[in-house]
Design a protein around this nucleic acid. Sequence first.
DNA 1: GTAACCACTTTCTTATTGGTAACTATATTG
DNA 2: CAATATAGTTACCAATAAGAAAGTGGTTAC
Lengths: 122, 122
Amino acid sequence: MNNVQHEDVLPEQCNEAILALRDTIDIWGGKWKLMILLYLTINSNNKNYFMEIGRGISGISGKMLSKELKDLEMNKLVKRVVHDTKPITVEYAVTPYGMSFIPVAKALLEWGLSHREHIKQY
Amino acid sequence: MNNVQHEDVLPEQCNEAILALRDTIDIWGGKWKLMILLYLTINSNNKNYFMEIGRGISGISGKMLSKELKDLEMNKLVKRVVHDTKPITVEYAVTPYGMSFIPVAKALLEWGLSHREHIKQY
DNA sequence: GTAACCACTTTCTTATTGGTAACTATATTG
DNA sequence: CAATATAGTTACCAATAAGAAAGTGGTTAC
């Protein structure tokens, strides 16, 4: 099979669904964005400074943290607040809009947890 | 900042959460798996043959469809049934276990839909 | 004045993903 | 016997994602 001709077999509703799914993937996809949301959410009682987040998320590089935070900020999911301290510190926090994704992230996480249980029993 | 030393700032529960999230991403990540789940779910009244799925999902190549279906089958999320017809046909269907992800996929989809509404109003 | 800390950015390189097109194998149709 | 259909596989290539390392610019501590 080479690239298949698409002849709108599916209802309009389905194309919309596909686009919506892709949007979500575009916004939250990649290796680190969900981890950052998780970290920021769990540590929301503390101030989340750039270096702190980097230390908290095992394996992430400065470049990726910077890039992913910028992407999230662009989509208004995270807000960036610069504090005029001695060496400046920059705080990141999940916006109310970003929080609208938390139940979805939780669902993903919980499916992962139950999957781990599932494969333990073969 | 170069690669940060990780000094378990987060509770054990959080590491588990991160692993679970990563599992889910590993299993359902990539460009096509969620689309395939969606397609198979919506069209579950019909028999889903290989070529049909290819025609139904706009833009997917035979190689990717084959690969993604194989991955999903390996994780017992989709089952593959060969029918001994004139030219053989192969039917794919979401397993009950695969169906356990449908509510999660729906949540992703619905967030995407509401996000489309959200950005329409700036 | 040099070392250290914060918050990045830049450059270079590697790894992963995904796409195109051709090919295999079997079977039917005209 | 050539064309078409099903269900893939294989080889090659381009694009993207991600990692490693070094550098920037400002401030402060010793």
